[in-house]
Amino acid sequence: MMVAGVGLVASSMLGIHADLPSICVASEQLSLSAVVASSRFFIATNPTGTLALAWLTMLIAMMTPLLALPLSHVHASSLADRRLRASTGFLLGYFGVWLFAGYPLLAVAIALRLLAGNASAALMTACLLALIWSASPMQMAAQNRAHRLRRIGLFGLAADRDCLAFGATLGGWCLASSWPWMLVPLFVAHTHLAAMFGVAIILMAERLRGPGPLRWRFPVVLSIPTGWIRETVICRRSSGATGHV
């Protein structure tokens, strides 16, 4: 959580997010040529390195809390004096996949903005898309695979390769599981950090829901409030507990 916090702070300090979503939040109707022009201006005024750093800090802020269990697997599976190296390899693999996913995600965001007509409609469409995806068996399949553990070698380059591969595989399934939610903050300009924080909580809740059979189900983000109402209003949790041992 501390790492995520640092990521959030770094993310806000870089100030790139006010620019990053600006493509998608202009209030007037955008034509394809306007988007291309905006994109060119955006890339020209934001060097690739800065853009990548901004995207990376956003990812660190949002994704790190999801990595506690996989990281503990890497940690427990490695020799005591290689744990830092193993965790670094894992994180490189994980965030490497996400880093490269930044451009296609941006392209999807621009396409969505074009189709929606205005920024508010694009935000609504992104939220709707994310909700439908969250309810779908496809998302469940990706999420199930994001729980899968694999061997971590103990020695030499084989160990590094395993950590990198585990991180990349997990990153790929996390991306497949949560990509529509990652679009949402891109359409929010003034409360971008709050949107990131909210999405991070949703992604955490989806991971905590755990794996399950493939079928359509109630999206986690909607089941949180309904579950809370059920637990606190309808049936009191552990009503008969009076103590222990």
Partner: peptide, 13 residues
């Protein structure tokens, strides 16, 4: 109805 591990220990339902 829900329960927790606490409910299964001495004094629990």
């Amino acid at each position: 109805e829900n329960y927790t591990a606490r409910d299964t220990l001495n004094g629990g339902k």
